[in-house]
């Protein structure tokens, strides 16, 4: 029984962390219409940034500044934001394909750099030497995991509240206006590229927060954690939940993560030995089908954005 509960705590922690990242993506895609093909780079920047700043000194790579944990986490978020700012400033003035390609490219390059730059990231064997905060008081057991889950849930709630407030604010309305009709927004004297940059960087900082928490949870991060798979999973979560809707985004995160975990377990449990090598491929096909299928048959997601009118008027007049 305790085993089941402890697993549920573990599951809920990871799902909640991913839900934070989905919320960040929702600000970019759902509210602003920005395609981020490299979610994992910003997530990874948060994870690596947090662990490098908050870890203990290591012989073979930089970092280990042993910073006070909240500062390290903020530093990770800042790293993600900085990366987003660089990509955004170069691409957000151009037609939208450039952002899609560049963000995809930044994710490839980020993983590649983390894998090779041993002096920076520990290379392929990953980044070690991070002590989870408050470990002395709470130990490494069940209690710690419960407390950590509560912290993650609080941060998820705070992110959710922040985004709901933002979306309801004049800035949020402006973002939607830009998404629907850029020319009209520009004629109102607003600079669409600056607004998009703000939304893109903010969304990426939120992904950085998720990455920082993820790194903290495992007290370890390696190039295996920043593979493109994570980007696809986070997208599927948003599309299933319904782009533009923060509640749907959180729900989608739990739903897809559950489906991913269960299908992985079922495949490893029931698939014949010789097919075990291919369970990954099967899971990828499923996630690809979820993305394409949702776009074809239910583009508004399971929980559509409340302002449905805007979808039909997207066609250029």
């Amino acid at each position: 029984m305790i085993g089941v509960i402890s697993y549920l705590v573990f599951f809920a922690t990871v799902a909640s962390i991913l839900a934070i990242a989905v919320l960040g993506l929702n600000l970019q895609w759902g509210n602003t219409g920005l395609f981020n093909g490299g979610v994992v780079a910003f997530f990874g920047a948060g994870a690596y940034g947090t662990l490098l700043l908050g870890g203990t000194p290591q012989g073979d790579h930089i970092g280990g500044f042993g910073l006070f944990y909240p500062l390290a986490l903020l530093g990770g978020m800042a790293a993600a934001g900085l990366l987003a700012w660089v990509v955004g400033i170069l691409t957000l003035r151009l037609r939208h394909d450039y952002l899609a390609i560049s963000t995809f490219g930044v994710a490839v390059a980020f993983e590649n750099l983390m894998r090779n730059a041993e002096g920076l990231s520990g290379g392929a064997k990953g980044l070690r030497g991070f002590e989870r905060p408050m470990r002395e008081g709470l130990g490494d057991g069940f209690l710690y995991n419960i407390v950590f889950l509560v912290v993650v849930l609080l941060l998820l709630w705070a992110t959710y509240r922040f985004l709901e407030t933002l979306v309801g604010s004049p800035f949020g309305r402006l973002l939607r206006a830009i998404r629907e009709d850029e020319t009209a927004a520009r004629s109102l004297g607003k600079s669409p590229s600056r607004c998009r940059l703000t939304a893109f960087v903010t969304g990426s900082i939120i992904m950085g927060l998720a990455g920082g928490l993820y790194g903290t949870f495992y007290a370890f991060v390696s190039p295996q954690d920043v593979l493109p798979t994570l980007t696809f999973q986070i997208w599927a979560m948003l599309i299933v939940g319904g782009a533009g809707n923060n509640k749907g985004a959180v729900f989608g995160a739990f739903l897809i993560w559950a489906a991913w975990t269960v299908s992985g377990w079922a495949l490893s449990r029931f698939a014949p030995i010789e097919a075990q090598l291919y369970t990954g491929s099967i899971q990828y096909v499923m996630i690809g089908l979820v993305i394409v299928g949702m776009l074809l048959w239910r583009p508004q997601g399971l929980f559509p954005e409340r302002l449905v009118v805007s979808q039909s008027s997207r066609k250029k007049a």
Binding site: F35, H96, S281, Y284, V285, I287, I291, L295, L296
Partner: peptide, 23 residues
């Protein structure tokens, strides 16, 4: 009329093609 979604669809399709070939 969901032109922006086409890039998403293409990513999903790429995943399916690549892994079906693998299978």
């Amino acid at each position: 009329g969901e032109e922006l979604s086409m890039v998403f669809a293409s990513f999903g399709l790429a995943l399916v093609i690549r892994n079906v070939i693998g299978l």
